[in-house]
Amino acid sequence: MTTFLRRKATAAALGVLTLTLAGGGIAAAAQPAAKAPVEVAQPGARQPGAQPPVTAAQARADRAAMKATLAPPAPGTIAWAVVRSDGVLLQHSGNVTGAFRFHCCNAGEYRGQYQVTLDYDVHLKAHSATIGTNDQLNVPPGGEISVAPRTLTPNAVFVQTRSSSGAFADRPFHIVIAN
């Protein structure tokens, strides 16, 4: 009896596996062979995002901020900041040392890209951001925001904001780094 049930379970498992693979093959075959050209792509399609390069001056300033540390916040506490759409730091906790919006020679090249610097290593910390202001009479513009550790800068986070359609856009934001 046990052998019969074992054979039946094996046959059922192979049947499920076969159907799963066949279904995946059908789904893969149903995909169009050619992708639509970029100009025909759906509105709001994501633009590829890459962080701006770290300049030598930025690297020196970020290293100096880490050397002047007050001491990292205790576990379970947070560091936070409110940043205006032009990169000006409006309010912040004690460990936030600065914020700026990236600028470059080409108009709009680094639109919606910011760096928030702290005085301790945050590259392995949890971070979250939302679009918003600290002005009680102003409703912030709609949009999207993403946060990532800053490339080659362990004491900074990179923030990228977009309009609701997915295009890079300067937006005010709040950021929290959990310790």
Rank of each mutant, 00 (worst) to 15 (best):
F4D: 14
L14R: 00
L14T: 05
A22Q: 00
G23P: 03
A29Q: 01
Q31E: 14
P32A: 13
V38W: 06
V40Q: 12
A41C: 07
G44C: 07
G44S: 05
A50H: 08
V54I: 15
T55E: 02
A56Q: 11
A59M: 05
A64Q: 11
K67E: 15
T69L: 05
T69N: 06
P72F: 04
P72R: 10
P73D: 10
A74P: 13
G76Y: 06
A81T: 02
R84Q: 15
L89S: 06
L89A: 07
L90F: 12
V96P: 01
G98M: 03
A99Y: 02
A99W: 00
N106E: 15
G108Q: 00
E109M: 07
V116Q: 04
T117I: 14
L118T: 15
A126Y: 06
H127M: 15
T130R: 13
I131L: 09
G132F: 04
N134G: 08
N134E: 14
Q136F: 10
Q136M: 09
G143D: 04
E144W: 08
T151F: 10
L152K: 01
N155C: 13
A156H: 02
R162E: 03
S163P: 04
S164V: 14
G166R: 00
A169P: 00
D170L: 01
R171C: 11
P172A: 03
H174P: 01
I175L: 15
I177T: 06
